[in-house]
Design a protein around this nucleic acid. Structure first.
Lengths: 212, 212
DNA sequence: GTCTATATGTAGATAGAC
DNA sequence: GTCTATCTACATATAGAC
């Protein structure tokens, strides 16, 4: 074990906690205000620390933003791919089952944990902004390609470009369920709406009709 | 005609052109960078004028933003409602026909004119951000309610909240077609995709399956 | 690692000459 | 209405004491 490794693996407990608090705060603030709208001071206040510390741990605003995305991206991708693997172990998965494997981890994590909900909204920001295209390509597109390939296997005659288009429609609906519940509620006027099952039914029918 | 009215109705030709240029520039810059990411200096540069003039005509950054939305909102709403009226004149409209009346004006205007395309992307920003909830309520929700009511008439047994949810999914897919073509292209790898007909087929099938 | 103080740039907004 | 110059506030970022 080299000295460098030792130093990296044994930071004080306090520093770990502070760094995590800063990343949590950044996640929430970036989710709320977007990258440009958020300030390092907002994040410092949300984390209960000083601005200098946010710079120190974040290595600048943009780097901090990328860290918040990267921190959870792998786990989300793994959960999606694990769910798909479980499905496939039971035979050829149906279209709704495939969509459920993609939507389910995202929505269930967002529903169960406030910090994951912030991350889910952050993902929506990145997905909508071509300025973060490289982040989408690095963290989200590989998993999306796996699911697109799975759908393509069910509809061998459908052109790849059309599958990609309707997949993006489906993803945007998934993101809307997390980011636009306020709008759904405003338009619904009464009663709750917007569930994973609703979304899967909507997208499965749409995809099926578009690809056959 | 009062003197005040006369003064308001007879500004110099130059001032009209400048004001329009500023609004056009604001539309493009806000669409590109969002509200927080855009600066008055960006807008002045895009308009080929001075920062002071942007403030003068825009009455502050937020007011300028609201003006860019308000300027075209009425025309977009009118085109949608006119299309729906034409449909209804020919008998009870089908679900795809209703969706086409809502999506068509938005997508066709965006496709035919660079300035309308900027507006379409601006609409996507507002629709995604609860901070602009009041703008959505003032400019977009009334038209949305008309179309939701039209869909509800086709599916009398479906709960209103569910119709609102799937309508928001559909709108988010429509917005994605304008804002996320880069993502569709990246995932498609080859060939073009994403047309109004695709979108209508996708959403009509999804809505139909969710509401019966 | 933590915190204070500060450097440096740039934001929105305004005043006043023309 | 137009344009120059400027005010004030706050942004990111860093330096240095502890």
């Amino acid at each position: 074990m080299t000295p460098e490794t030792t130093r990296k693996r044994a930071p004080s407990r306090r520093s770990l906690a502070t760094r995590a608090r800063i990343l949590d705060a950044a996640e929430r603030v970036f989710a709320d205000k977007g990258f440009a709208g958020a300030t390092m001071r907002d994040i410092a206040a949300a984390a209960g620390t000083q601005v200098g510390l946010v710079h120190h741990h974040g290595h600048g605003k943009e780097d901090l933003f990328r860290q918040t995305i990267a921190r959870r991206a792998e786990e989300l991708a793994r959960r999606r791919l694990d769910a798909l693997a479980v499905c496939k172990a039971q035979g050829t998965p149906t279209l709704p089952a495939i969509l459920d494997c993609f939507f389910g981890p995202y929505l269930n994590l967002a529903q169960g944990d406030a910090q994951w909900l912030a991350y889910a909204r952050l993902v929506a920001h990145v997905s909508a902004d071509p300025a973060w295209r490289d982040i989408s390509e690095a963290h989200f597109d590989p998993t999306a390609q796996v699911f697109i390939a799975e759908i393509a296997a069910l509809y061998p005659a459908a052109p790849r470009a059309r599958i990609a288009a309707v997949f993006v429609y489906s993803v945007s609906a998934m993101l809307a369920l997390v980011t636009s519940r306020w709008r759904i509620d405003a338009l619904a006027q009464d009663g709750a709406a917007g569930t994973l099952d609703d979304l899967v039914a909507f997208c499965a029918a749409g995809l099926g009709a578009s690809l056959t």
